[in-house]
């Protein structure tokens, strides 16, 4: 890992401003009805915010990459859990409905 990075305070301030702006975007886009896309758009904006928090506030951009590996291992298994349970439910709804 070597020497600790001292990231300039200005970087953190810029990230905070970006996060506050994206919070405004989150609320703003929620006014419009995009149908089934509503949740996807909200999650996309939330994920941009999440990525900023992870990269800058949680130092993943600068730190040892092993922390990044741990994080994505967790996210991967969450995705497996999400994907198969959702697949199960969606196919069952299709069977029961006349869609």
């Amino acid at each position: 890992m070597g020497a600790h990075h001292i990231i300039p305070a200005k970087t953190f301030l810029n990230v905070l401003i970006a996060l506050l702006f994206l919070t405004f975007v989150t609320v703003w886009v929620a006014q419009f009805d995009f149908g089934v896309m509503n949740a996807f758009i909200a999650m996309a904006v939330a994920s941009i915010k999440g990525a900023l928090v992870l990269m800058y506030f949680m130092h993943l951009k600068y730190d040892d990459k092993s922390y990044l590996v741990i994080f994505f291992t967790g996210i991967f298994f969450l995705f497996v859990f999400f994907f198969f349970s959702q697949l199960d439910i969606v196919t069952r709804i299709f069977e029961g409905n006349t869609l």
């Binding site: 989150t26 999650m43 939330a46 928090v53």
Partner: peptide, 8 residues
Amino acid sequence: LIWIYLFP
């Protein structure tokens, strides 16, 4: 981070 997802 969790609140960022919970809020929307």
